[in-house]
């Protein structure tokens, strides 16, 4: 033992749990040439974004199709393209061992999420469409007027067969339908679903928002006010279209 008798000083370190957002690379194919080709294509779209980006490789899909992949070659491929692989996920024993010898930890595949956007899955490999059965969405239906000061939240779609008063706030993770005057605030896709839409039979809203992109009444083209419309997001711009 060391003879150094230090005072029990303040702790210089501590362990804490942290949740970090790390991009995940989900593979649908084991064809490394194809992977590299599409990877380069992606990088060319946003070179700075991907440079030195940490990345987790998800192997669950290819393993579920019994395709074998050489993890070492893949990791080398990523490194030469300036990615910093920080883990693999959903790998089999052999792949996990391979990763460990390269100093890359592996993670269990529990709570694995499916491709965030369908678009991503499409560009990578459109033929693989073994989507999980979708979770039951909790749509909400209301047929009494939503009064000023009331707030309504729906985990799925929100359907209101009455008016929404000024000063009321209706929110949905999915679409919003109002079969009546919409005078309050309507926020669709509040958890970030940019494909959600707002439909109403009479647009007089104080504020409309889809996935955080909003417009206040003053910014709504007067041609669209007091008319039946649908509202959707196109390239981060709210489009109001009469129906």
């Amino acid at each position: 033992m060391s003879t150094d008798t230090r005072e029990p000083a303040k702790p210089v370190l501590e362990f804490k749990n942290a949740t970090l957002n790390v991009p995940m690379l989900i593979l649908h194919s084991v064809n490394l040439a194809q992977i590299e080709h599409q990877l380069l294509e992606k990088i060319s779209q946003a070179p700075d974004f991907f440079k030195h980006s940490p990345i987790v490789i998800d192997l669950q899909d290819i393993n579920s199709h019994d395709l074998s992949l050489d993890v070492q070659t893949l990791i080398e491929l990523l490194r030469t393209n300036h990615f910093l692989p920080v883990g693999i996920r959903g790998g089999n024993n052999e792949q996990n061992q391979q990763a460990l010898t390269l100093g890359i930890p592996y993670h269990s595949s529990h709570a694995i999420t499916h491709p965030v956007t369908e678009k991503k899955a499409e560009t990578l490999k459109p033929s693989v469409t073994d989507e999980q059965p979708t979770e039951p969405v909790e749509n909400k239906f209301i047929n009494t007027p939503v009064r000023s000061g009331q707030r309504i939240y729906s985990r799925g779609d929100l359907i209101i067969a009455a008016t929404v008063s000024a000063g009321a706030e209706i929110m949905a993770e999915g679409n919003i339908h109002v079969y009546g005057g919409l005078r309050g605030r309507a926020l669709a896709g509040v958890q970030g679903n940019a494909n959600s839409r707002i439909f109403c039979s009479r647009l007089e809203a104080e504020l409309i928002s889809i996935a955080g992109n909003y417009k206040i009444n003053d910014e709504i083209d007067s041609d669209n006010l007091n008319k039946p419309v649908q509202i959707f997001l196109q390239e981060r711009a709210l489009i109001i279209e009469s129906i």
Partner: peptide, 13 residues
Amino acid sequence: VRDSDRMLGILSS
């Protein structure tokens, strides 16, 4: 009218 609307919301909840 706005205040009445608010009151109606409270009445119903």
